[in-house]
Computed example of a mutant assay.
Amino acid sequence: MSIKAIDFSRQAVYETQLLAKAMPPNSLGRLASLALKLALIKEGPLDSLSLLLFAGDHGVVEEGVTHSPQQITYQQCCNFASGGGACSLFASLNHATLSVIDVGVNHSFSEHEAVVDCKIGYGTRNFLQGPAMGREQCLQAMEAGRNRVRVAIETGAHAIAFGEMGVGNTTSASAVAAALTNLPVSAITGKGSGLSDAELEHKISVIEQALVLHPERDPLTVLCNLGGYEIAAICGGMLEAAEASLPILLDGFVVTSAALVANAMDEYFHKYLIPCHQSGMQGHRRMLESLGCGQPLLDLQMQLGEGTGALAAWPLVRLASHLLTDMTSFSDAQVTDSTKLLQSMGLV
């Protein structure tokens, strides 16, 4: 199965439908543009969102790139799975389905903790000492992501969003992004959860050393060498969602690094992305520009991750998806067609 090129010949039909709605032309601005983009990806209203939150630990934390102790990864997974945290709150308020999935956490979860077990390993290796993951492990993580998307589709998801949890994962995300975009490491590396200026310089140095140690730039090798289990799972899941012609609600910095890998694997992939927000993390805007998926819907300076940016944008996406099918037209509403009047005057 491969990703289909979107049929843009249908766009004129949808534009005509939108102009027939009982409102002045172009009066909904970017919301109307979003409606057109969504219709080209998947016709019909979107009412069911599945957020797949993948978790994994990172060996590079040995290099002092974060102040957060690694046990926070598994602790937060338990918190999210039990209904805590921002992602759970946002999902609940949005009536979205949240799944917390362990692909590489350095912890053994018990059944009662409600974390989905897709474990490939107990954290990646330190990528300054060799590849973060073996090729087979990376492919297994990607397949785990694909499988969870299939489950989401089988249970009725109309759109898919991805979240992540993993102490140290902004270091891996920056490394992956730098390798695939050729942007300077300093341009796409931020302080994460509160580094000092000097500590940020150290983090940048660690990533620069890794790029020299791992000079290969094909996407799968980059993912193996510099990524994380959760980044690999998100990459695989995104490819599966795009192959199923579903809109993908793109979250923040770490999830976007996975999208860069998927985009390097398939030329049509980025057309299925709905960029939900511009993260407050250093360099996220430039990563989005490299993807070529358009302007993000929100810019709230969020940098939490967990899929919270996608969840914040979901109400806008859902609204836009209903415009073509559910909004009354001039004729249905028995309202004088002011758009046709403007068209007759050559103003539209």
Rank of each mutant, 00 (worst) to 15 (best):
A35L: 08
Q209S: 15
F80N: 07
G190E: 06
A312C: 11
G104E: 10
E216T: 12
Q140D: 14
E154I: 03
A20S: 12
N106F: 03
A114G: 08
G104D: 09
G166W: 14
S331G: 07
L297P: 01
E267L: 14
R217P: 11
T171A: 05
N182G: 14
I231D: 01
Q301D: 14
L220N: 08
Y229R: 05
C276R: 13
K119E: 06
G194N: 09
R146I: 00
M133K: 03
A232K: 05
R146V: 00
S344D: 07
R148Q: 14
M265P: 00
A173H: 01
N94H: 11
A132E: 01
V176T: 02
D117T: 06
S110W: 01
Q303A: 09
K203L: 02
T325D: 14
A210Y: 15
L323A: 08
L19V: 07
H158S: 09
P275C: 08
A161E: 01
G166E: 13
L139I: 10
E199H: 11
H202C: 02
E15M: 07
G156P: 13
H107V: 02
V348T: 05
Q76P: 04
L300S: 03
R150L: 09
T308S: 13
Q71C: 05
D299V: 03
T16K: 15
T73S: 13
Q303M: 06
L298A: 01
L220G: 03
E201F: 00
C87H: 05
H107S: 08
G283T: 04
A173Y: 05
F127Y: 15
L324R: 07
P69N: 05
H322Y: 00
L18E: 05
K42Y: 00
N182Y: 10
E15K: 14
L213S: 09
T339I: 00
L98S: 07
H112Y: 14
L246H: 07
H67K: 15
A210H: 14
F269I: 06
T124H: 09
V255M: 02
D57F: 02
N79E: 10
G84E: 10
V176H: 04
E154L: 13
A91Y: 00
I248M: 04
L19I: 09
S2Q: 15
G123P: 13
P69Y: 01
P25C: 10
V115N: 03
T171R: 04
A173K: 04
L273C: 06
M265I: 07
A161W: 00
L342W: 08
V61F: 12
A179Q: 12
G83I: 12
A157Y: 09
